[in-house]
Design a protein around this nucleic acid. Structure first.
Lengths: 132, 132
DNA sequence: CGGCATCCGCCAAGATACTG
DNA sequence: CAGTATCTTGGCGGATGCCG
């Protein structure tokens, strides 16, 4: 069995599963799964580390969603949140050491996407035309 | 602006967007976004290449969903489908060259997940307890 | 500025059953 | 064994507004 699905709701012993070979994938997807998490991590890594800045970089999303995803990244200790208690309030995020270990993956994903951008775009285009 | 969102529906010229720096990420997520796509690619790469085999490896999913995702991977030319016209029918998938270029990323994700498995599990556990 | 509460719509994915 | 047709669902993410 290849997969270990992270579902705390399901009892893992209902079906006896052979130890999952590729469990790691599921773990990583748990961290990077959110719609904006990779982007958030990348942005923070290059110093865009305040909520308003991040929202400006990702205006397609909303404060709410970004907050949710930042909170999860924080729970998993990929980022740290520093709160300055002042008026107006000020918050800064930064990558933890653990978060840093994700950067090679993100950079590689980014690079791969760049290298294949034109091809992928063409497929998407072809696809959307097929809808007519 | 960090993000290029792949939305063929929205007119990209409504808001004039500065050219996206990290566009690559969106591309890669377009390919690996499906729930089982990374697993499918990994499985195929190690020779688990027939639909029934794949379904056996990922019993949490269904034939239907696996088929959908395989079809998309095929559209993006990450995998090739070989159909043997016989009875009973037989189908085999294999990675294309382009698909091979994804493997380093998948392996890295897998490795990262393995290295962080215990920590991530503990966070998930803590979280689910917090629901009581 | 940063955060939270509410409401809502969509769509990917699950369940099931059927054909060749 | 492989693939398709329906129907259903849950939850993620989007929209909006208020508060300190």
């Amino acid at each position: 069995m290849l997969i270990f699905v992270i579902k705390t709701k399901k009892k893992m012993y209902e079906k006896k599963m052979p130890l999952p070979l590729e469990c790691g994938l599921a773990m990583t997807k748990e961290i990077l799964g959110g719609k904006w998490k990779p982007n958030l991590l990348l942005a923070i890594s290059i110093g865009i580390n305040r909520p308003s800045q991040l929202h400006r970089e990702i205006p397609q999303s909303t404060k709410r969603v970004l907050n949710l995803q930042l909170k999860e990244l924080e729970e998993f200790e990929m980022i740290e949140k520093k709160i300055y208690h002042q008026l107006p309030p000020k918050v800064e995020y930064r990558l933890t050491e653990r978060g840093e270990t994700l950067m090679p993956i993100l950079r590689q994903m980014n690079e791969w996407g760049d290298n294949n951008r034109s091809f992928i775009k063409s497929v998407i285009l072809k696809r959307s035309k097929a809808l007519d």
